[in-house]
Structure formats: C-alpha cells, structure tokens
Amino acid sequence: MALPDKVRIVEVGPRDGLQNEAIAVSTAVKIELVERLADAGLRVVEAGSFVSPHKVPQMADTVDVFRAIARRADTSYPALVPNEQGLKAALACGVTEIAIFVSASESFSRKNINCSRAESLERLEPVADLANASGLRVRGYISCIAGCPYDGTVDVEEVALMARTLNDMGCYEISLGDTIGVGTATKVRTVINRVAATIPRERIAMHFHDTYGQGIANVLASLEEGISVFDSSVGGLGGCPYAPGANGNVATEDVLYLMEGLGIETGVDLGSVARIGDWISEVLKRPNMARAGRAILASRTVSGG
C-alpha cells in the first residue's frame, strides 16, 4: 500500500502527556504549552480533560485552561470527556470537539473507570448522543489494543468490536491506543487490518507509547497500512496512571522527523516543536524523551544556529 502524501498529527501532550506528572503544573504553563503547540502548526491540540479532579488531579484546572487559551480559527482543541457531567462542563467552556474512551481489555476497564466494557459503552451512549446533537465532533479512543497490564494478551476481535460500537455511536474517528507500548509492527498490522474490516480505514488513527522503543517502528508500519492520523506527545511526555510501567507517548518530534524523511507533509514546524519539547521538559524537571528533538537542538548549538 502506498504511503500517504500527508498526515495529521493529534498533539496529546497537554492532556495525555501531563496527566501523570507527579509535580503540579501551573495553569499558566498549560495555557502556554497549548498555544505554543498550535503556533508551531499543530492543527489538533488536545487541551485537557473534564475528569474527576480526585482521580486525575493534574487535570483539575481544565475549565480554566479552556477559558483562557487564545484559540486559533484553524485549530481544534479537543477535550477528553468521561461522562455526561464532564460533557456539560465542556459545553459550558465552548469546547467544540470531545474524545470518549473505552478499553479493549475487561480488567483495564474495571481498574481505570471501575466498570465493565459493556457498562462503559452504556454510560457513553448518552454522552455521544448529546455531543452529536450539540454539534460537537466526537472522537473515540480504545486503549490496550496490543496488550493489557492485567490481562496480558488482548484479542483483536475485542478491539474490532469496540471500534465498531464507537463508530456506530457517531465517532468520526477511532484512535487505537497501545497503552502500555508492547505492540510490534506485526501486531499493529494485524490490529489495523482487522479493525479496517469493521470500519473505514480512513477513520482509524493510531496512538503509540514507547515503553519498548517500538513507537516509531509502529508508526511506520501503520503508514504502510494506509493510516494517516497519529497521536503523539511533545517531548515524549506521558504515561498512564492505570498502566504500571507504561512509558510516555511516542514523541511528536520523532514522528515529525520520520515524516520529513519520508517526504510526507505535516504542516508542522519541527524546529519549533523541538524547542517546545525542551522547554516543557525543563519546566517539569524531567529528561526530554524526544530523540530527534534533542539531536536537532544539539546540532544547532554546535553549529551556532
């Protein structure tokens, strides 16, 4: 299958990237991060989540973030929404796109949101109905598509079933997430092809974590399967509070470097994203996990650029 001419990068750093950080991140930093990413050319920046502050304290100020960010007309700022209460809060903040999430693993669903997969879908149906009726775009996430920290292997048929259900709820796109980063190229190809037999391939996005160093390899395998939408996180920020040992998301800088090398259009300025990754890593007092970002900044320092 021919590689796509262009791809869309969904930047999840401000939400998925920050949600598991141990140190408190100020609202001002979050606002600056969202705005700088949008200014770098990222046309989708997931800006927060309307979840319980007791479960995810880092996202407690999402309302303040959405009220303060300077929104570009050419950029979408989705928010993760777990229930009707979260959706109402999102609507009050002028959110125009939401994401809802389910798990392909039964145990992960119970650990993450304290209910079965079937119950999670029942809870989300009125959320999706109200969002669609309110004119919001709805995106779906499926976690643990390649493996689960509790169940181990996840049946690809379960992934396909959840994808079809979210599609039927009105999700315009389904992001398949390797939450614990155990996927390899062969597994990723298998999942994509099975899901693509259930929903249109152009509605599939991929979301990789880099726990085993397979993130970029899996992006390339997905490209070769015709996928053209990828979630990534500046500086490789991320992890999951309910997936022990899961490293950060595949770094936006690394994905952009791959795309540039393949001649695939992204519309994003790699140099700007590299600087943002370096800045936010310093703010968080953590290593910058973006290999391409570190290399670009180091080469410019040596050359005096």
Rank of each mutant, 00 (worst) to 15 (best):
I113C: 05
I192N: 03
S26G: 13
I69G: 11
V234E: 12
M206P: 01
T252K: 12
A90T: 08
L3E: 04
I100F: 04
M162R: 13
A73L: 09
G48M: 08
Y172N: 10
A73K: 15
I69Y: 10
V273D: 01
A290H: 08
D254K: 04
L256V: 05
C171R: 00
R291D: 03
L270H: 05
K55F: 06
E46H: 10
R15N: 11
T179F: 01
V102K: 03
R139A: 11
D210F: 02
V29D: 15
I180F: 00
S233T: 03
V159G: 03
N249T: 07
T186N: 11
E125Q: 14
T27H: 07
A131L: 07
A24I: 12
S281G: 08
E157I: 05
S109I: 00
R286I: 15
A163K: 04
V138Y: 12
A133V: 09
S76I: 11
I142P: 01
A243W: 01
M162Y: 01
P200G: 08
L220D: 02
D269A: 12
D210T: 04
A243I: 04
G152A: 02
I100V: 15
V283M: 12
S175F: 12
G17S: 10
N83D: 14
R203K: 08
V10I: 14
A251W: 06
F208V: 01
A292S: 15
T252H: 13
E84I: 11
A298W: 13
P53A: 07
E202R: 05
C93M: 13
P200M: 03
I9W: 00
A24Q: 13
A217E: 06
E21T: 13
D178S: 03
G152W: 09
G140Q: 05
